[in-house]
């Protein structure tokens, strides 16, 4: 993959982000709901409201507002949150690491479990293991992540209180961190007790996000493995005298990866979107949770900021997925 390709993809991200900014900006201003009405007490006079409206620039026309917004944006100024009275960029960057860690743990879990299930059901084809995996897949796929969140809370926090159900860490211990990447930082510093507590908090939300993706990965990988297993080169490997396990993992798996990576990438993006509801259910302090708060308060600058960050995240993910194709398929390297 050439640097020119990378550069072109990154340049293409600019018009995409501009499009997202336009759509979100206009949508937020034409749907009913008034941020000023949400923040003023009942006894405020119309003059007070007009003054507030003016101070936030909301009295100007929508195109005018957008030009001002864009002008600030290109200078790195995302505006000030109406409800939290803080700089939007600082707020988003403060919360983003928590979401990234959650998504990362969830995707690791999905890939590990999905691959294991697909490989196991291909290896033990035609036995009860294959039927069992298929059944688990159907259930995991049929239930959306927010419902999984509720079910997991019921099972592992209420019936069997094994895991905490809210937050990221005991607030008393959160002061010990220098960055917002708590999990990464505790692992790097070798504070494994702390890491275990963080993972305990992550377990249920990550699992809720991962379960549908596990099913998707297992299903796609299994079907592409089955396609690959009837190819001539697998027959040749068998005739070379290799064991079934080696044929499956070394000869077949690398060939079956391509469709799986494509689909995992697409669904990972859904997973990041899914964090909004799951973070809310588990009171997990990520940007998803913040987005919900911003939406209920009609906090226009904050909603705009979070949406742009999500859009940027999606674009970067897509580029990463495309780059990974060349790694697994030598035919795409030129």
């Amino acid at each position: 993959m050439s640097p020119a390709f990378l550069l072109r993809r990154l340049l293409l991200a600019v018009p995409t982000l501009f499009g997202v900014a336009v759509v979100v900006f206009v949508l937020l201003r034409i749907v009913p709901g008034d941020p000023i009405a949400m923040m003023v007490p009942g006894e405020a006079t119309p003059e007070d409201i007009a003054r507030l409206r003016e101070s936030y620039g909301l009295d100007k026309s929508i195109p005018m507002q957008f030009v001002i917004y864009l002008d600030h944006l290109v200078r790195g100024d995302f505006g000030v949150s109406i409800s939290l009275k803080q700089d939007v960029l600082t707020l988003v960057l403060g919360r983003l690491p928590a979401t990234l860690e959650l998504a990362l743990v969830a995707i690791t879990l999905s890939v590990t479990c999905g691959f294991t299930l697909a490989l196991a059901s291909t290896y033990w084809r035609g036995t009860w293991i294959e039927s069992g995996v298929d059944a688990i897949n159907s259930i995991a796929l049929a239930i959306p992540e927010f419902l999984w969140a509720m079910l997991l809370i019921l099972a592992f926090a209420v019936l069997m209180p094994l895991f905490p159900i809210s937050g990221r860490i005991d607030p008393m211990r959160a002061t010990a961190f220098a960055t917002q990447f708590y999990l990464v930082e505790s692992l790097v510093r070798g504070q494994f007790g702390l890491a275990r507590e963080l993972l305990g908090h992550l377990a249920l939300p990550a699992l809720a996000l991962a379960l549908p993706l596990i099913a998707v990965i297992a299903r796609v990988l299994k079907s592409s493995l089955q396609e690959v297993m009837v190819q001539d080169y697998i027959l040749l490997a068998r005739i070379k005298g290799f064991s079934n396990l080696r044929i499956l993992t070394r000869e077949a798996l690398p060939n079956a990866l391509l469709p799986t990576i494509t689909l995992t990438g697409v669904h990972f993006i859904f997973l990041v979107g899914g964090t909004v509801l799951v973070e809310l259910i588990f009171a997990y302090p990520g940007i998803g949770n913040m987005l919900f708060g911003a939406a209920s308060n009609r906090d226009l600058p904050l909603i705009q900021g979070v949406t742009l960050v999500f859009a940027l995240l999606f674009i970067l993910l897509n580029i990463a997925i495309e780059l990974s194709y060349a790694l697994v398929n030598p035919r795409l390297r030129h």
Partner: peptide, 15 residues
């Protein structure tokens, strides 16, 4: 015992 397959273009692992 070894074997030579019919279609050489598919007999080798592409990756």
């Amino acid at each position: 015992i070894a074997m030579i397959l019919q279609n050489p273009m598919t007999a080798l692992n592409p990756v």
